[in-house]
Amino acid sequence: MDDALSIGGYDLASRLFVGTGKFTSYDLIPQTILASGAQVVTVALRRMDFDSPQENMVDYLPKGAILMTNTSGARNATEAVRIARLARAAGCGDWIKIEVIGDHKYLLPDNYETIKATEELAAEGFVVLPYMSPDLMVARKLVAVGAAAVMPLGAPIGSNRGLRTKELVRIMIEEIERPIIVDAGIGRPSEAAEAMEMGCAAVLVNTAIATARDPIGMARAFALAVEAGRQAYRAGIGPVQDYAVASSPLTGFLRD
């Protein structure tokens, strides 16, 4: 693949990851994922019910999709680690999105506990993608302890507020040598394109697709936006000019 995203031994063609927590019907899940082209899909262990095939979201994922279990509900590293182990024991594979949230009002992640959980799970061979509040030092530590990618939030979960943390994410993209994936906050395809244009490796979208009037149509729109943003990033976006390039008010006197 020409421009594959390599994570956890996989070369991913799609740079759109999707979440599943807010769908109005499980029957919508397979078609929506297919329309999004996503290869990585997150499902919370708390929502999986292996004893009820009709109610088990995992059974609705298209064949070949990589299941990334998320640790939704974990309040600290210990709980996140337990959820990851339970998921692996239940046959959910090794991909784990660490989500440690100690604040129910804003659902903001606990970076300190996230680092601890990442360290423990990476050592156990999990492919660990931690969800975090953007912070360069934390991102460096996450990479040092074995994170496969780092997933800063663009805005609080479900807020659809867009890339509010842009400057912090930009610094992480410049400094961190692992994929930076914006997770949470992206409300519209143009915001996904914006994240990709600035060099994010991928984006993870849930609310904006699942709660759209037409989730399948919105999934397709996000797929196109992510692709457009990525192409633009690779093509090299010209710098923004505040004045006409031809004019040289300060150095015009240096004519030969």
């Binding site: 109005t24 019907s25 999986m48 339970l86």
Partner: peptide, 13 residues
């Protein structure tokens, strides 16, 4: 009503 009724939203640790 266009809503999803779910039976499980927690997994004991």
């Amino acid at each position: 009503r266009g809503y999803k009724a779910i039976f499980k939203d927690w997994h004991p640790l």
